[in-house]
Design a protein around this nucleic acid. Structure first.
Lengths: 239, 239
DNA sequence: GTCAATGTTTTTCTCGAGATTTTTATCCAA
DNA sequence: TTGGATAAAAATCTCGAGAAAAACATTGAC
């Protein structure tokens, strides 16, 4: 087996290059949808997109099918594909379900995490902090924000990585991807507030102190805060 | 609009015919995998299967991709598709996650369900009871068991149908499909025990009495019982 | 006898064209 | 002007063949 040391990658999950054209198109499309380049509800015509992403029709079709797995694209019978619509209700559902799963997983992680898990938590938190510094210093360029997104995701992933439930982690991955789409809307208006760093720090402290109730409480507040930010957005952004 | 009365289908969810060849192959393949016709871990070669399911190579490929969504098939980079392996650990994970999601959803359902929900619960329970009768009377023929599976699934689906969380219901669907695969193993050895009907009856009673703690307790025991049955199976069945 | 390298065979992946189905546009009658 | 039916257009869905990769078998050297 090749997971000898079980050292998770801190690169954000996109370490290995796509081994197939379809997977490459899938990743490109996924980022474009999350970034809002393809608007929610928009029709995704294979004939047009195949040129844009430089693949054949069948290959692009396969990429779209993969996106259906992530629920970022919906397929309707004999009527093609469409970007999954968004709504405040949907984000509320995503957030509450995410809180449910992520708190349980964090609890298990705090119970069972070993030294390596603690080290990974500290390391990914450090990576995230550095990305935050870069965001403050330089202007809000696109690459910096993307890097922050990757490291924020890695941080949350590492936090629950010691949970024994692969299914909870799997569902959490899907939900995180979904919420990324909504968070992008709120970040577009207001930059990352300063206290986010403090919240992350508090989660790390409580987790390392093996204080599960405190850690899950802070994590819950932390996730719910993004919901509030989206609630305060102008309605027309949730087209 | 055509959902005037919001009457859910009690046919087990496979009411509408497949509108595309790919979807047809997908459903056939899904049943064959759940039924164990394709063994866990088995390699699924497109060239062989395309004749067996009477579709083109690209179409079968698409069907396999859909199965990846349900986690019944795993795709490995440039090395084709494979039936998802099974293990006792996996089933334990599936069961515990299912308990977590289904109890929350049932609680919400009991809180918010209206008259129509109550009627659907009673109706689907009746359908399930009839299927149980047929199972007892006639021999354990294949069709009867399949019908029971469909109605059992419909029953559990209706129970949580009043939950407002589409995401929990979505995840529950996936997990139910997974557990069906394992349940088939235990049913193969021992027929459905008699007290399953009593358990279902107790859940219905508690749900209609709006006794959420009691209903979730029984539901939890009910789901965990299948885990015990699988635990007592000979090890070699979990190949 | 073991191991590495090479060549063959199988399988997957990709593409473009044809067959169906859906969507849009046009026309005619009420 | 509105409504429905017919015809044209566009898009989806499907298929089989060719290119790329992986798995397998054979051979040869140490």
């Amino acid at each position: 087996m090749n997971d000898v040391a079980s050292v998770p990658d801190l690169t954000g999950g996109h370490a290995d290059e796509p081994k197939t054209l379809a997977e490459g198109a899938y990743r490109q499309l996924r980022r474009d949808i999350i970034e809002g380049l393809h608007r929610p509800g928009e029709k995704l015509r294979v004939e047009h997109l195949k040129d844009q992403y430089s693949v054949g029709a069948g290959t692009l079709r396969e990429a779209l099918q993969l996106l259906v797995t992530d629920a970022l694209v919906v397929a309707q019978g004999q009527r093609g594909f469409r970007v999954a619509p968004i709504s405040l209700d949907d984000f509320e559902d995503i957030t509450r379900t995410r809180v449910l799963l992520e708190t349980v997983a964090l609890q298990q992680s705090i119970e069972r995490g070993d030294d390596a898990w603690e080290a990974n938590v500290v390391a990914s938190f450090h990576m995230l902090s550095r990305a935050e510094d870069k965001l403050d210093d330089s202007s809000k360029n696109g690459h910096g924000r993307e890097e922050w997104e990757q490291r924020n995701r890695a941080f949350h992933e590492v936090l629950i990585s010691a949970s024994p439930s692969r299914w909870i982690r799997h569902f959490q991955n899907i939900l995180y991807l979904q919420s990324e789409r909504y968070r992008r809307l709120s970040l577009f208006r207001q930059p990352i507030p300063r206290d986010v760093h403090a919240e992350h720090q508090a989660i790390v402290d409580a987790a390392l102190a093996r204080n599960a109730p405190e850690a899950t409480r802070i994590l819950t507040d932390h996730i719910l805060r993004t919901l509030e930010a989206v609630r305060n957005l102008p309605d027309d952004l949730l087209s």
